[in-house]
Computed example of a mutant assay.
Amino acid sequence: MPADNLPVAQSPQTLSVSDSTNNKELITDPQSLKIALATKLKTMTGVHGEFLFPCVPSMLQEYLQTLVGLLNLLGQNPTPEHIDNLRQLIEKGISEGFRLSSHARLIVSYQLAEANKGLAGGITINTKVHVESLSDKYQTWPQTRPEPLFGSHPDAKVMAVASQLGKPENVPVLDVGAGTGRNSLPLAKLGHSVDAIELTPIFAEKLTEAVKAENLSIKVIQGDILDPLLRMRAANYKLAIASEVLSHFRYSDQVRLFLAKMCDCLPSGGLLLFSAFLAVDNYQPDNFAREMSDISWCYIITRDELNSAMEGLPLEMISDESVIEYEQNHLPKEAWPPTGWFLSWATGRDLFPIQQNPPMELRWLLLKRR
């Protein structure tokens, strides 16, 4: 996005050279001379820097206080009018950034208004919104994170549910958010026909390479499950899975859209298994918590919101279990935890970095289409 800028009030003006030549008084007072030297030093002092603020609208006042504190520290003494203008500039940026992406950052840069006058010439503040999509963020993972990115074994719950549905060759599976194939590849090796949807191009490429190398029955589809134009085969899959996908959602309408699309692709009796962060029953997240859960890949859903998203859809809840408890009890010991970040993330401590139990947890939800 284009940058916005705001000139901030300059430091108080000092006596100019032309004025001082008309003053015949000789000054030798050390304190007065020290003030004059400090003024000269200020004209020779430069400063520049930037803040990268997550675009969290609820943090408007805190961001404003940070910047006003900086300006006061630099001796700029912004007026109420300047502070109000700065507030509008920040509010515009973080609101627009949050609307565009949960990974947007408001870049606030500050520099001298007039380089030859140093701090005495004032400070100019510029803002710019830097937007990254979820796909952009994940695109760098293969270069910045060790393999396996999401774990070396498939989800124990996924494999258990699939095994209960009959012979693999008779149980086609839809894997939403398949990643590099942690669940798709083992399912296909058992004989399941798998359609794998993956948002991130580099993950879809890696999965495609693995499919070709092992000659497996997996159709890889690069796309966004929330895209209304992305259609799956109607009433085709006996099992649809979405592991660690809903944590990236942002609104309850997206949960509703996801469930509705799953209903379209499942026949009567088909199962939908997905993981989601559910709030504990007595916790109602405020706007700040919701916005932070959004940008932290921990989207919180209350059970009331989940029930509302399911309302009117031909779905019934079969089970609701802790992901941590189930996977720890059923995965091989060498596969637990799946990754170094999993426990902190799944317990909600990525969002709430506290020793106590956060008021949310990653849950396995198993639904049946009527």
Rank of each mutant, 00 (worst) to 15 (best):
H153C: 11
I295D: 06
W141D: 15
P57F: 00
W141G: 10
N215F: 03
P338E: 15
S293V: 10
I218M: 12
E316R: 01
C265L: 08
L190Y: 03
F53I: 06
R370Y: 09
M59Q: 04
A260R: 10
H330D: 02
E147P: 09
L134P: 04
F51W: 06
T43G: 11
N126W: 07
W341P: 09
E305N: 00
L257W: 13
M232I: 06
R370I: 05
G223I: 01
S252H: 08
Y138K: 05
E81V: 15
S135M: 15
T302A: 10
K92R: 09
L174C: 09
L73V: 14
I324C: 14
F288Y: 08
Q284M: 14
Y237K: 07
N357F: 11
L246I: 14
N85H: 03
S11P: 13
A115L: 12
R87Y: 10
G75W: 08
E321H: 03
N282I: 00
G118N: 10
S322H: 08
E25D: 12
Q76Y: 05
V131M: 00
H153F: 13
G69K: 07
F203C: 11
D84F: 03
P359S: 04
Q88V: 08
S268K: 15
L149P: 11
L351W: 04
V161R: 00
I354G: 04
L86V: 08
A120S: 07
Y251T: 02
P154S: 06
P57N: 01
F288N: 05
P228C: 03
S163L: 06
L112F: 09
V158K: 00
V131C: 01
G69I: 04
G340R: 01
H130N: 10
S163W: 00
G166A: 05
S163F: 01
S247G: 02
N287R: 07
L230R: 08
K34A: 07
L71Y: 05
Y326M: 01
G46W: 09
N116G: 14
M262D: 13
R87E: 06
Q65P: 14
L26T: 15
S193F: 08
S32H: 05
K167C: 12
L246F: 12
F277C: 11
N329A: 09
F150P: 15
V245K: 13
Q65K: 14
P285M: 12
N77H: 15
V211W: 13
